[in-house]
Nucleic acid binder design. Structure first.
Length: 664
DNA sequence: AGAGGTGGTG
DNA sequence: CATGCACCACCTCT
């Protein structure tokens, strides 16, 4: 690239993401080729060069500490002239509702302005809001979702046009690293700079004063992003990942809003469900202890004359001892799939106990502890690049794994809208199957999905040479039950052994390895384009070291060396992961575009409400009652529109539900 | 503190 | 040889 060449960054809006009109924003950046050269030199050696040519001095960053409104206005006017800013905050903790915003640092390449949020009324500072919400100024941030939340709640501004170093790095290294890179790690990697991070703790243990050392530390975080940004942008362009990065940047404020809004949970009803489960669990626990007592010599009573437990039912070790040494069953593990086939009453009691114990421990009181004392709602932590495929993950708590509603365990019905509002729930139907049909171009699979046939019934009809009819599901339920796990499993490289287990789980029936192999053969000859497609993906991934979704998202693989003793196993692993990636990844791509579209529609249509959950192929929003029906239509339309960006051959369906509980 | 086992979701 | 993918929470044990 020639000196002075301009890099066009596009403002992050959906019309641009869709690629209809790629309008460069007016703020083209002068690419600093010098910095690139510096970084290259740095990587190789020479510390001296680095300090001479970085635009800031890591040992003595230039900053201005701003403690009154007049100073603030002057600084903001200066900052408003910039095209790119570094932005960071310091707070006493992680919760924007309970912890305190202390500092907001906004900087240019050469100077950092540190706003003391304790002394300046940021909410009343019009220029502050204008600057941060200005869509033409790029804000370089690291994990911007975090800072966005504090600034929205405590400074009243909704940051716009973020370039997030953490997300950029995750996009550039998907599949290679587990945890997202910290700013410290990025500084090390891109700038060979070892930055001090211990000072951060002093903000968390905030005592009421802010020292010069803390200010220097705070300033650094607005300087470091510039050179890293330049280098990451180069890489993103080189890997054709600019558009994916832009989606991630656009999604990050949607996710932030989603977390801030949180979700209401009916704690009373929740506790009633748990209490019921506990009662049943305790019965099975008691029954279990009685059943095994004879096998143990110790037979003690506690203070109240009750028998003490012979073993801890949650201890795999003690259970193995019971089953193998006391009962002579010789089982290799105590998982449910295995226990199911063990013909012994004690094993069955354990299974009953486990069913309840699982729910109580994973979704019981511990989940209610996550309700915010300030908002009365749950604010989970969504990680938008939590999975190597591009999917979200969720924790504290993980609302993506709340059990589906059943009569005995209606957990999801406890998630309700606030009074005067409704939940709008919409998911893509058979989305991964549709993606596979589209990407493989398989005519029969496309035919079935485009004509509203029940896909698993249709698969069964092809596999077993029967005519497909509307009541196939009723007529041949057992054949459909076989076709279903094959459809879900085989597209990711499941083998005959795995299929035996899946079919047993689905139907309770045991099939032989030969039968299993026969089913696989029948499936692939029913959909002749599918096998070739999957094999091509797998082969390409092993050869190139990465796989790609139609949207351009990449996932990389650690290729083993031929002398690796586990070479074959590792190659097979890559092949299976690669078969899954375009499918799961395209699902993620579509959901992310949909979220961005939905945020825009919420604003455009003046909707009172917001998105509260994204569960892989499902989006839940909370909308004022009188607008809910209209919004429901919009929500599924935008989801379909997002899917259509990448899938051109298959129809996409999303049916919305307006409801007072989370269900569909 | 981290690993392994188990099991909830898409 | 092992043998669907993607996660996270909870428990026990070392």
């Amino acid at each position: 690239m020639a000196e002075g060449e301009r890099i066009e960054l596009y403002s992050i809006q959906s019309r641009i993401l869709v690629g209809k009109r790629l309008q460069p924003c007016k703020c083209a950046l002068h690419k600093n080729t010098l910095l690139r050269k510096i970084a290259k030199v740095n990587k190789e050696n020479s510390n001296l060069n680095r300090y001479m040519e970085l635009k800031f001095d890591p040992a003595n960053p230039q900053y201005e500490y701003i403690t009154n409104q007049d100073q603030a206005n002057d600084a903001l006017e200066e900052l408003g002239k910039q095209q790119v800013l570094g932005l960071d905050i310091e707070s006493t903790g992680l919760d924007p509702y309970t912890d305190k915003l202390l500092l907001v640092q906004i900087g240019t390449e050469t100077k950092s302005y540190i706003f003391d949020a304790r002394k300046i009324k940021l909410k009343e500072l019009l220029r502050f809001k204008e600057l941060l919400e200005n869509p033409k100024i790029i804000k370089l941030m690291h994990n911007g979702k975090f800072d966005y939340g504090f600034i929205k709640i405590q400074a009243g501004a909704e940051i716009n046009n973020i370039f997030d170093l953490m997300l950029a790095e995750s996009v550039l290294t998907a599949g290679l690293k587990g945890k997202p890179a910290s700013l410290k790690e990025l500084s090390n990697e891109y700038l060979s700079l070892d930055v001090e991070k211990k000072v951060r703790e002093s903000f968390i243990n905030y005592t009421g004063t802010i020292t010069d050392e803390q200010l220097r530390y705070a300033a650094m975080d607005t300087f470091l992003p510039f050179p890293i940004f330049n280098l990451q942008l180069e890489k993103l362009k080189k890997e054709n990942l600019v558009n994916i990065a832009k989606v991630e940047f656009a999604v990050t404020t949607v996710v932030a809003d989603m977390e801030l809004r949180g979700i209401f949970i009916d704690t009373k009803k929740w506790r009633e469900i748990i209490a019921n489960l506990q009662k049943k669990r305790d019965e099975f626990a008691k029954q279990f202890q009685e059943q095994i007592r004879g096998y143990y010599s110790m037979n003690q009573n506690d203070l109240f004359g009750n028998h003490t437990d012979a073993i801890n039912m949650n201890s795999q070790q003690q259970l193995m001892d019971l089953f193998n040494n006391k009962l002579g069953l010789n089982i290799p593990s105590t998982g449910d799939a295995l226990l199911e086939s063990v013909n012994h009453p004690i094993a069955q009691t354990l299974r009953n106990y486990r069913g309840y114990e699982k729910l109580i421990s994973a979704f019981g009181e511990s989940l209610l502890a996550k309700v915010s004392k300030v908002t009365g709602r749950i604010h989970p932590d969504f990680m938008q690049l939590g999975a190597a495929t591009g999917r979200f993950s969720c924790r504290n708590p993980n609302l993506q794994q709340i059990p589906r509603n059943s009569e005995e365990v209606p957990f999801r019905t406890c998630f309700n809208p606030q009074p005067g509002y409704k939940l709008v729930v919409a998911d893509y139907s058979n989305f991964e199957m549709r993606i596979l049909a589209d990407l493989s171009g398989d005519e029969k699979m496309l035919y079935a999905l485009n004509n509203g046939l029940d896909i698993h019934s249709y698969t069964a009809s092809l596999m077993f040479g029967l005519e497909y009819t509307k009541d196939f599901k009723k007529q041949y339920p057992q054949l459909r039950q076989i076709a279903k796990p094959i459809g879900f499993g085989l597209m990711y490289g499941m083998g005959p052994v795995g299929l035996i287990g899946r079919i047993r789980a689905e139907t309770g029936k045991d099939i032989t390895k030969e039968e299993s192999q026969e089913y696989i053969k029948k499936f692939f000859s029913s959909y002749p384009s599918v096998q070739g497609f999957l094999d091509r993906i797998a082969k390409a991934a092993v050869q190139k070291g990465y796989s790609t979704t139609p949207a351009g998202r990449k996932r990389w693989y650690h290729k083993p060396t031929p002398d690796d003793p586990e070479f074959k196993r590792k190659i097979s692993q890559i092949e299976r992961e690669a078969k899954n990636h375009p499918i799961q990844g395209t699902n993620a791509d579509a959901i992310k575009f949909a979220l961005v579209f939905l945020k825009e529609r919420l604003k455009k249509e003046n909707i009172d409400g917001g998105i509260i959950l994204a569960v892989h192929d499902e989006i839940v929003s909370e909308i004022r009652e009188d607008q809910a029906d209209a919004w429901a239509k919009i929500q599924s339309e935008e989801m379909v529109r997002a899917g259509q960006l990448f899938l051109k051959k298959v129809s996409i369906a999303s049916e919305p539900f307006v409801s007072d509980v989370w269900e569909h």
